[in-house]
Design a protein around this nucleic acid. Structure first.
Length: 576
RNA sequence: CGGGGUGUGGCGCAGUCGGUAGCGCGCGGCGUUUGGGACGCUGAGGUCGGAGGUUCGAGUCCUCUCACCCCGACCA
């Protein structure tokens, strides 16, 4: 490609509304342009990156037996009604009508279409297992898009689906995906980790996320320094030590004026936070009052609490709602309340003789004990982990990291196939629901994550696997012999299968160097009157600050050799 | 949806007390330059986000509205 005719210009300054590096650099480097909130055009340079990410994904999906297909972006709403998600998913899914007043939805994912296809295409256990996938547009009307390509509303996603006869076979397909994903993210040069995750709106039983490390990531991860455990904050567990057993002491009311927070209470009574029981009040989506009880030194993980209660949303209760069940804001305890679902964290069960509210202003109770003084409807774990929390496996203090979710894998089970009647006949001729898994990779987000991890003050430092071009070729000077020599090298490189972005513009050298570094192709070649006089070409890697002079007739071989080395560095089979 | 912020030429910005819109970069032409974002001359390009209002007069004041960004809520 000759830069003199490339569509899209580089920008000297980033748009004022771009804050994170990947957003700024991809706009400046003429890869993306904003159209609206969460909507981006891909310019030719950016599209090349996206296509390369897609191709890596495609190769690895094919390698585990995936069959590529393509499903529509617009769906008739009835399949979503049959799965139930038409009613479960909120405004994130866009609904529209066609000219015949028929209800349609814009696809935010494709479980429904796959399941619908399965019901007609799969009839026998002999056809299973299967892996199908497509790489296609998704529309999710996010409440808030952000960060360039990190979180957008319209985006390209690879979604694949495993179809199996039983849970054991599902494990196999799931594990194949875990391996394929490892290879994909390695090949595109990401520094990443697989963590345990919440199943969210996808439902199902098991889910893990692949997280690219980045301070600009939206997720918080807890990671064991010994590699024994890694989880999204939403589901992160930690080791809970059993406190020394104590005899249960009698309940005793204590006057605590103006002590409406746990911190004040602990100070007033001169006890550690861990000797108090904290009450947190929510109203669930069903309208039930959710009364969460947790040890005073811990915080509620609302995702875990939603899971435990089966409530899709939890809204903090108002003071009036709290009083309506017989509790008192600031002085609440589960002792004597009525009409609430009492959910107790494990920390409480393990801790005897805690201080809790007396459900009247200015008073608390000492020596409150679960089972003696009140009963729980649910006892489970819903405490948030924290930086330094003990690893649930080895007890080492966990590190807190930020990550960008670049892929996720879900075991769906029969959630969709049962509802939509996607069955196969087993060996006994009996109809059984197909067991499904669902696996996603956001293509554009991956490209952005790579930029977040691989850039410097001058621009992007692409890994060769997804760089827009392998080589930036610069002609320095307008002398005819320089132009001719650069034209010739351009042709030779292309003939050798090297992808070249040829900066043939009439600009000064500084402009070309700067743009080459901004765009970030891995190999830079420069030809000028000076190099020509010595019969050489200057070669510099984007990752290096020193150049190398290469005899003109060795350049193509040298470049292809470097390319092979660069690809090898990203090769998951090389053991590097 | 709550909180904060910004809308002036392609990008970055200025615009005082209300007086008829300017700077840098970029872009076209000519000339001089050519190894780290050159210089001179010259030229093109703006419904000042939109609507309404106040006023002799609005980029500027008032009202409404739209869009975008950031934090939170939410989120496969």
């Amino acid at each position: 490609m000759r830069m003199s005719h490339m569509f899209g210009r580089t920008l000297r300054e980033a748009p004022a509304d771009a804050e994170i590096p990947s957003h700024q650099l991809m706009v400046r480097a003429a890869m993306i342009r904003p159209l609206g909130a969460g909507l981006y055009s891909l310019l030719p340079l950016g599209l090349r990156v996206i296509r390369k990410v897609e191709q890596v994904v495609r190769e690895e999906m094919d390698a585990i037996g995936g069959q590529e297909m393509l499903m529509p972006v617009v769906h008739p709403s009835d399949i979503w009604e049959r799965s139930g998600r038409f009613f479960e998913v909120g405004p994130e899914m866009t609904r529209l009508k066609d000219r015949g007043d028929r209800d349609l939805v814009l696809a935010m994912t494709h479980e429904e279409v796959v399941t619908d296809l399965v019901s007609t295409e799969v009839n026998s256990y002999r056809q299973l297992p299967q892996i199908v996938y497509h790489i296609q547009t998704k529309w999710r009307d996010e409440p808030r898009s952000r960060g360039g390509l990190i979180r957008v509303r319209e985006f390209t996603m690879k979604d694949s689906y495993t179809l199996d006869t039983d849970a054991e076979a599902l494990d196999t397909g799931y594990e194949k995906h875990a391996v394929a994903y490892d290879r994909i993210f390695t090949r595109i040069g990401l520094d990443f980790i697989k963590v345990g995750a919440d199943v969210g709106m996808m439902g199902g039983s098991k889910s893990e996320e692949f997280m690219a490390f980045s301070p600009n990531g939206e997720d918080t991860l807890f990671i064991c320094p010994n590699g024994d455990y890694a989880a999204n904050r939403e589901v992160a567990e930690f080791r809970r030590d059993d406190p020394a057993p104590e005899d249960l002491l009698p309940v005793e009311e204590v006057e605590t004026p103006d002590t409406d927070t746990i911190a004040k209470l602990a100070e007033l009574l001169d006890i550690p936070l861990s000797r108090t029981a904290k009450a947190v009040f929510y109203i669930g989506e069903s309208g039930r009052f959710i009364f969460a009880v947790i040890r005073g030194d811990l915080d509620v993980n609302e995702t875990a609490l939603r899971q435990a209660t089966g409530e899709a949303t939890l809204t903090p209760a108002t003071a009036d709602q709290i009083r309506a069940i017989g509790a008192e804001p600031g002085y609440g305890s589960p002792v004597g309340v009525e009409g609430a679902v009492i959910v107790v964290d494990e920390s409480i069960r393990q801790s005897p003789n805690l201080v809790a509210g007396a459900n009247r202003p200015g008073y608390h109770l000492r020596n409150v004990n679960l089972g003696r003084d009140y009963e729980a409807d649910i006892v489970t774990s819903f405490a948030s982990a924290w930086e330094g929390a003990p690893c649930p496996v080895c007890n080492a203090p966990m590190k807190l990291e930020r990550g960008i979710e670049v892929g996720n894998i879900f075991q769906l089970g029969t959630r969709y196939t049962e509802k939509m009647g996607a069955t196969y006949l087993d060996k006994d001729g009996k109809a059984q629901p197909v067991v499904m898994g669902s696996y996603g990779i956001g293509i554009g987000r991956n490209a952005a994550a790579v930029v977040e991890q691989r850039h410097d003050e001058r621009g992007i430092v692409w890994p060769i696997s997804i760089a827009p071009y392998h080589v930036s070729l610069l002609s320095l000077g307008k002398e005819a012999e320089v132009i001719e020599a650069t034209d010739r090298l351009f042709a030779e490189l292309e003939a050798a299968g090297v992808e070249v972005l040829y900066d043939d513009r009439a600009d000064r050298p500084g402009v070309k160097f700067t743009d080459a570094e901004l765009i970030g192709n891995p190999i830079r070649l420069s030809i000028s009157k000076r190099t020509l006089g010595a019969g050489e070409v200057e070669l510099r890697l984007r990752t290096e600050t020193d150049s190398e002079m290469v005899p003109a007739d060795e350049v193509v071989g040298r470049v292809t050799g470097i390319m092979a080395d660069l690809f090898a560095e990203l090769d998951p089979d090389s053991g590097a």
